[in-house]
Design a protein around this nucleic acid. Structure first.
Lengths: 245, 245
DNA sequence: ACAATAAGTTAGTACGCACTAACTTATTTC
DNA sequence: GAAATAAGTTAGTGCGTACTAACTTATTGT
């Protein structure tokens, strides 16, 4: 069993500690770190409102939590300017993302989940799975480097390919590209794209783009498709003059 | 992501509800239900102190939680007398136990965990795994009816063999018995017993018992062992005149 | 440049779930 | 059966994490 919630999280046990010893974070704190990481990948510090929106909570709640995370040394907050992860916060975020992606891979490969339907389950499990379990899953999968959506899996040490990929929405007309990766957020959207052959590995060519976020025409294999701007922005690609492998 | 803690647990959404609609319980509430179930298996209502001890928290905390669980219709509390699960509380407890045991089985069979070392991991995962995931695990295992420690796995509907088994400590001198099941609580103890050949399925015979909780001598296969009362109480057996199967 | 709007923060509240201290009820023992 | 002990409850507190309302700071548009 072993319950006990609040107090075993504080962890004041050593004689002195320069850096506050972060033993175990709450689910919530972990989620904050993850979304801050993801927002920061966009280039700028994570704004309160953006965090709030990602988490589906009120902005006021975020202000409070950011202060606590700052106290824990996990983020650096500049008032009215947003938050950035500290080195330790970043590590935690990356470990969570590692967990998430390995779990997704495992569920798809070993338990028959669809890759369009796995996000939510992983979202809960990533907070409950031990590092050991995640490593075992990774081993069972042959230590993959990307998850079913094409997202790179960070190493235990927190190393990961952070190159920013272009999305279909960024592609110039006429370009040929390979789908590398897609957002795992919205199962509906993923199913929609899958039905149209837009999956990691697919080769496509952008045929035409209407202005004002209008429909984007492209060929996938030899089928012609037309998708909207939101869908296009969720598909990350790599330009390829020639089909490599 | 999706955080939001307190409020999505209340679940007042329908026009009217005779029975309070229990949407999702907290981890803690679930743990309470589980230990109440287990204590109740002993025959009498779960006493506050017993619950507190199992959960490693103060008795006062239990009093409070019992009132909340009673408000939710999950337990019936008689003041100063202890708590019993209601039908719905019992169902939830059994589903948790189902999760726990399937997860343990999965970890052992599919991920190479030792059966002596799996309890803690399952303890966390059982609160995070969806019913769907658990069913998939069960399928992948061929829908086993007992976990690696020999404990029966409840069905989705909450049916389970609740016969009370005798432990080695209850066995009369000279009796021959088959180990059916052992407590999964203490990994140390399990390793100790495993090393002595005392595992589910083993056949043993009680040779001698010293009084005052003294050592119990028994043969396991053709080896002779002597174990203490605590260890003996953790091993559940079924008497067998003749070795069946 | 300054008003309008957007973004962010503080203050006050609530609930979950733990704690300790003090009190009450049950049980045991002489 | 009364005193001693054990078990259980209430009261008050603290922390995490959410909320709304009211206020402050930044940004934007004319």
């Amino acid at each position: 069993m072993s319950a006990r919630a609040t107090d075993e999280r504080s962890g004041a046990h050593s004689t002195h500690r320069a850096v506050p010893r972060e033993k175990a974070l709450t689910r919530q704190a972990e989620d904050y770190l993850k979304v801050i990481y993801e927002i920061e990948q966009g280039g700028s510090p994570a704004a309160t409102t953006d965090i709030a929106e990602q988490l589906g909570i009120a902005a006021a709640s975020v202000s409070g939590m950011l202060q606590r995370l700052a106290r824990l040394g996990l983020v650096k907050v500049e008032r009215y300017r947003g938050a950035r992860l500290s080195a330790s916060g970043r590590l935690i975020a990356l470990q969570l993302i590692r967990r998430h992606r390995i779990i997704e891979s495992f569920l798809v490969t070993k338990l028959g989940y669809g890759w369009d339907d796995v996000h939510e389950e992983a979202e809960r499990l990533e907070h409950a799975a031990s590092a050991d379990l995640v490593d075992r899953m990774a081993d069972a999968l042959g230590n993959p480097t990307a998850d079913p959506h094409g997202a790179p899996i960070p190493t235990v040490a927190g190393r990961v390919d952070e190159r920013r990929l272009a999305s279909i929405a960024d592609l110039p007309v006429g370009a040929r590209a390979r789908v590398v990766r897609m957002s795992d957020r919205d199962p509906e959207l993923l199913r929609y794209l899958k039905k149209r052959g837009i999956v990691p590995g697919a080769i496509l060519r952008l045929v035409e783009r209407e202005p004002f976020d209008g429909p984007i025409s492209l060929t996938v294999g030899r089928a012609k498709q037309s998708i909207g701007a939101t869908a296009a922005a969720a598909v990350y690609v790599e330009k390829s003059a020639r089909t490599d492998r």
